[in-house]
């Protein structure tokens, strides 16, 4: 596979959220506003890239039987770093994301990439893979949050967009809105893919 593909595959073809249905919890939970979605996307990308790099670096020294616990420790370390830095420099965002920052540890995307990719590939390819998957995740989060915030709150990134005359569809910003939006988006993508093939 060409090097460029390692990056671009994560954006659409192997998008972790829409195509692999991984990392759903934070995707649905923090996509109620674009601001939260962007913050979460950045945090996630940071952890993905760095844990991919480290896992790839140590892949020859790790005994096969205990590789998973070791990957988890590596991931948890970077997650805690993000948690601490966010608390210190972006306290409002830290407050809004709540327990979903530490929960990045159990995000199946990260452990999945460590196990399926970084543990078997060179550092450079792992970096690109992490970056691509991170951006793919952020993109999915952004699309969801964009739809939900505009329809559910009439705002975008906290700025009033549709004016006071718009009656927000409250349900979009509540939990059900997240399920409905992602279900419809996935259906739409299946439909588009099928049309393109035929």
């Amino acid at each position: 596979m060409s090097v460029g593909k390692e990056f671009t595959k994560g954006l659409y073809a192997e998008n972790p959220v829409f195509k692999q249905a991984l990392g759903l919890c934070p995707t649905l939970a923090v996509s109620n506003s674009v601001r939260n979605a962007v913050g979460m996307g950045l945090a996630m990308t940071f952890v993905l890239v760095l844990s991919n790099i480290i896992v790839s670096l140590i892949r020859r020294f790790v005994p096969r039987k205990i590789r998973i616990p070791i990957y988890i420790v590596v991931i948890a370390t970077f997650v805690t770093i993000v948690d601490l830095v966010m608390a210190g420099f972006a306290p409002d965002l830290h407050k809004a994301l709540g327990i979903f920052v530490p929960l990045i540890v159990v995000n199946c995307i990260i452990l999945g990439r460590a196990e399926a990719f970084a543990g078997r590939n060179s550092v450079f390819r792992s970096l690109l893979d992490g970056l691509g998957m991170g951006f793919g995740f952020s993109l999915a989060l952004f699309v969801l949050a964009f739809i939900r915030e505009i329809l559910g709150d009439g705002r975008l990134y906290g700025f009033p967009l549709l004016g006071p005359g718009f009656e927000p569809m409250l349900i979009m910003i509540l939990p059900p809105g997240a399920f409905l939006t992602i279900g419809l988006l996935m259906g739409l993508m299946n439909w588009l893919d099928k049309r393109r093939c035929s």
Binding site: A21, F179, L180, I182, G183, L184, M186, G187, L188, N190, W191, K194
Partner: peptide, 11 residues
């Protein structure tokens, strides 16, 4: 057909 599987589960 496009809604089968995961999408309809989300709905």
């Amino acid at each position: 057909r496009p809604m089968r599987g995961i999408p309809i589960a989300f709905i």
